[in-house]
Every structure is written in structure tokens, then in C-alpha cells.
Design a protein around this nucleic acid. Sequence first.
DNA 1: ACAGCCTATTGCGAATTGTCATTTCGACCG
DNA 2: CGGTCGAAATGACAATTCGCAATAGGCTGT
Lengths: 234, 234
Amino acid sequence: MKRVGATEAWTGTADCRLCAIRGSVLFAGLKEDDFERFHRPIDQSVYGAGATIYAMGDPATSLFTIRSGLVKLTQFLPDGTQRIVRLLRSTDLIGLEALIDSEYPHTATALQPTEICRLPVEFVRSLSHSNAQLFNELMARWHKALSNADRWITEFSTGSSRDRVVRLLLWLAEARGDERCELFSREDLGAVLGLTTETASRTMAELKRQGFISEPRVNQFLCDMPSLRRLLDA
Amino acid sequence: MKRVGATEAWTGTADCRLCAIRGSVLFAGLKEDDFERFHRPIDQSVYGAGATIYAMGDPATSLFTIRSGLVKLTQFLPDGTQRIVRLLRSTDLIGLEALIDSEYPHTATALQPTEICRLPVEFVRSLSHSNAQLFNELMARWHKALSNADRWITEFSTGSSRDRVVRLLLWLAEARGDERCELFSREDLGAVLGLTTETASRTMAELKRQGFISEPRVNQFLCDMPSLRRLLDA
DNA sequence: ACAGCCTATTGCGAATTGTCATTTCGACCG
DNA sequence: CGGTCGAAATGACAATTCGCAATAGGCTGT
């Protein structure tokens, strides 16, 4: 478990009106005078790889927008086994559950250096009552989270280890838009797919040997997308 | 695949104001004059075991409230494998996705005779804009669906076949409030847990032999809850 | 009662995955 | 440059699960 750089640092406050990714963010639909209603500015922070953004059971006080980086949400079973139930990156929203629950149901951990904006739950709640567009945006976020979860079940928790790995690689590459894959440890890979670390490692090594993927830099992979896709049919 | 009784029958229109389960249903928060705004009454239907309520890819025109019975939502992969991603029963809402998507992302099938109310998506959409309580209720429904999906991943898609079966039995019994389990075919059991039909069958048979469960009636099980729970620790 | 049909159960060998230990590799540090 | 540390890869063996086929059991209709 990597601990180096597992840090959090507050990096100032944000003026949402000037946000570089404003167009794709939860507050996309807000207008000038909506922003006027913020009594306090929005906090921004950077988390190092391995840092915990919030832990399962913590009082759920905020939602978070990911500006850059990669975050995992992990859930634990009583017997100690854990499973990564979501992977989130730029423009994604985490902690939606704070709108309903009083405690976070997952642990959120940065997998790469990650920039985040903190949105106090009361901000979002009160704005959503008065602003129909934010309301719709929220609904769309719930929907997206849910269809991702469904995908997690059918694609990442079903079939042979090789199929699962391949589906995840394709998903990561497609989400980026090219054939590259920012990846993480074999341990996390296993926790996403419901496999042991060793099986994850063996499967990746095997795919490398067969030439379906290469690893130009550590934990960055190049995928032969068409061939990988063909693997899933056979 | 059982086809007998795979029927649908319209059974009339409902007056929501007189609904027996109104207190726990999506429209719980509506007031008298909200109901006035319904230009058309709500349709009610009964589906026989095996009947399809909607299919993946169908135009998403309605949400459905389950009055009684049991419904599975199935998702398919390109290669033909399928996975049950949700099990729903009385007072649950299905087809929430219709509020966002133009097509249903799952196939909904009745596992038992099931009574359903059909709520046209436009009804719900327009009411939700004017009624804050309905809005909150919708949000709560999204939340519930999502936390169920998370549970599906960590409890029903992780660990040995025996652990998965036991967790599902406990979940079904706890949801009912006693130690009884209305169950379904071994094939569906496997599709919920990501196991083959044979493995599901073997595991159930083994639990029966060991005395953890008994089957007084077909597909109805009695669970020795404390012992089952103990199995999960070991 | 009997035939027909569907589902559950079981046996068995093959394939996959898990488990534990060891080795290799790469990054970092003194 | 050698030493150290953690992650990845691999070997060996055990346990689990799959896949296919055969059998048993239950329900329906005649």
C-alpha cells in the first residue's frame, strides 16, 4: 500500500464563474445571480496519490467535484474484504449520497494526484430547490452513477478474469478517447474486478506477452483496441 | 425458461387517493389538488410469472410502481451473457431511468404474479418540477437504487459461491422481516450471483444437507439466520 | 396411471482461480 | 554503485468453479 505523498493540501478558494471546466460540472447551469448567493467561496484542494478524501462512516457534509486526477470509491464487508465500486475522474461528482445519508457509504481515495472542489451539502441542497436546471443536473448525475454501477456488475463482475480485465482496459481507454490507459496497482485492479492480486497480475502479464497491450511507461498501457474487442467475442 | 402464465392483463384504473400502499409509494407526498391535475387516471395491470414488463431498448415512456410481486431487472452483454442487476418488490419503483434516457437500459420481468401501476414519464416529470416533496422522494429513490447496486457489487459479486448464496438468502429474509425466503429458479439465482446454474444448485443443495436451510414448499425456504450469519465470519 | 416437459440434482474430468512462497524488477537512497 | 524496499511476476499446488451429461423429481394434460 503506497503511503508516500498521501497528503491533502488546501490550495485556495475558487471563483466558479471562472472555472476552466465549468461547462461540464455540476454547476454548469447556474447563472450569475445564483453564484451571488454563495456566502462563502468554494474550497479547492489537492490530494496526493493514496490520500483519503473521506472515509466510510464519516459525517457526510460535502459533495466533491473532481477537477483532475483519479479517485476510487471502496466499500468494505464485515469480514474485511473490500471492493472498489467506482472509479471517477475529471468533471465527475463524488459524495452524492451526502444529499440523503448522514454518513458516507464508501471510502474515497485518490489514486493519482487529484484536484478537488468541495461543495457543502447545504449549498447544493438549497440551490437545487430554487434552480430547476441544477435539479436536472443532479438527476442526471444520479442516473450516470447508477448506470455505471450496473455496468460494473455486468462487465466487471461477470465472466472469466481475462474478459473482465479486457473490458476494464477498453472502458478506461474509451473514457480517455484514445488507446491509452492510465492504470493503477495490480491490487486495485483486482479489487475492481473481484479477483486476487495474483490473478490480476497474471492476466495482465499474459496480455502483454500476447501483444495485446504494451507498457511504455510504468502503469501506463497502450491497448490494441480492435484485437482486444475481438477477444471478447471468442 | 418458464413461459406458462407469461401474460399481461390490464385490470383497470386506480384512484391514487385510495391506494392501499399510498404511504410508501412515490406519490406519498402528493396532496389532494396534485391528484386533481392528473388528466388521465393511472393504469393498473397484473403480470404473470415470466411476463416481460418492458425490454431493454424499448422506448422509455413510463415508470412503474410495484404493488405486489417480485420483478427482476436483467442486463445483457454483447456476447449474450446476462446478469440480473436488481430484484424489486412491493412499493419499489422501476424504470426511473425513463426520466433521463429515451430507452430502458434493462429488461424487466415478473418472477411472481405481479401487480403494477404505470406512471407516464411526463406525469412524473411535470409533477416533480412543481412539487418539492415528490422531488425529494425521487432523489431518495435514486439513492436507494444506487446503494442497492453497490451492495450487489460487494455482497453478491464478491467471494466464494457459498458466501454469495448465503448473503443473498439473508438479504431476502431480512427484507421480508422474518426468516422465510421467497425464491426463484436456480438459473435466476446464478444470474444474480454471477455463477452457473449448476454451481447455484450445488450450493443450495449443500446448505440444505447441512441443515442451514429447509424447503417446506417449492422455492420457499426457511433460513437458520444465526447459523448462516456465522458462516460468513468463518 | 402414464407420457411429456421442465427444472433440480449429481457425477466427473477439465479449466480456472486462489493461496502461499519465491524470485525478479524498478525506483530510490545513501 | 551496492543496498533496500515495495510491487510485479512467477512457480507449485490446492481448492473452487465450470461444462457437459446423466439421473431424479415434479407438474400437466390425456
